[in-house]
């Protein structure tokens, strides 16, 4: 049997990751449940006044989405690291860059995409004006891709460590800051009736830069973790 072409290889990897995720629906639902619960904490902590909640909603929704993405990124490589299939990926003849991109893409489809699609529900719970909801979904779609890219860098560097969970947030959270700033600013702009496109353009630029550079860092991180 000849080796599959690079594209087919990546698509197979992506499919494998998605199948793995779908087989464990509880794990796929965890970030959504986390999102719902933390969103519910804010009215309890800040008080239920609708105006105050609406004022905080863009930031709150973005922060919670960011944390949900962070919590899941810890597990992207862990299972494959433990059972040794990550080593197979490193030995594969296809470029590691693309293989890594498949992993990141699968993570985004399972966490970022789902979160963006259910976010309008939570936006309504926090009394976010309906006009801002398209901006919220779009900014989350783009921004969560950056979150997945950056989060996987942290995951690749900590996958070989036993207590990686806390460490990954220390490494990755400062790098999330630009995404948080522009993502929540996009939603805020929509609330204020200002144009949203410039923010989405900047987020798009971040996605492009991330796709170009992050897989290189992830590949280097995985090599280090496997060698250690």
């Amino acid at each position: 049997m000849s080796a599959p072409s690079t594209t087919r290889f990546c698509l197979r990897l992506l499919r494998r990751q998605l199948v793995l995720a779908v087989r464990r629906p509880a794990e796929m639902g965890n970030p959504l449940l986390f999102f719902a619960m933390v969103v519910a904490l804010f009215p309890l902590g800040l008080g239920p006044a609708p105006e105050a909640l609406a004022g905080f909603a863009p930031g709150v929704l973005w922060i919670v989405a960011l944390l949900a993405s962070l919590l899941t990124s810890d597990n992207v490589f862990r299972g494959d690291f433990d059972d040794g299939s990550l080593e197979q990926l490193l030995l594969a003849p296809q470029p590691l860059y693309l293989g890594v991109l498949a992993y990141i893409g699968a993570h985004w489809l399972v966490s970022g995409l789902l979160l963006s699609l259910v976010s309008p529900l939570f936006a309504l719970m926090l009394n976010l004006p309906a006009a801002a909801i398209p901006a919220l979904v779009c900014s989350l779609l783009l921004g969560s891709a950056v979150l997945s890219l950056v989060g996987c860098i942290g995951a690749s560097l900590t996958v070989g460590l036993r207590r990686g969970g806390m460490l990954i947030s220390l490494l990755v959270l400062p790098l999330y800051v630009p995404v948080l700033i522009f993502g929540s600013a996009a939603v805020q702009a929509a609330v204020d009736g200002l144009p949203v496109a410039p923010y989405l353009a900047i987020l798009g630029a971040m996605v492009s830069l991330g796709i170009a550079l992050a897989p290189l860092a992830v590949a280097a991180g995985l090599r280090i973790s496997i060698d250690a």
Partner: peptide
């Protein structure tokens, strides 16, 4: 600093920190 301390294998720790500082 924290990442370096977390690795048992100090050679790998150095490489991981180098990658992290470049990302930074």
């Amino acid at each position: 600093v924290v990442l370096y301390e977390a690795y048992e294998n100090k050679e790998a720790a150095g490489k991981a920190c180098a990658v992290l500082s470049l990302v930074g």
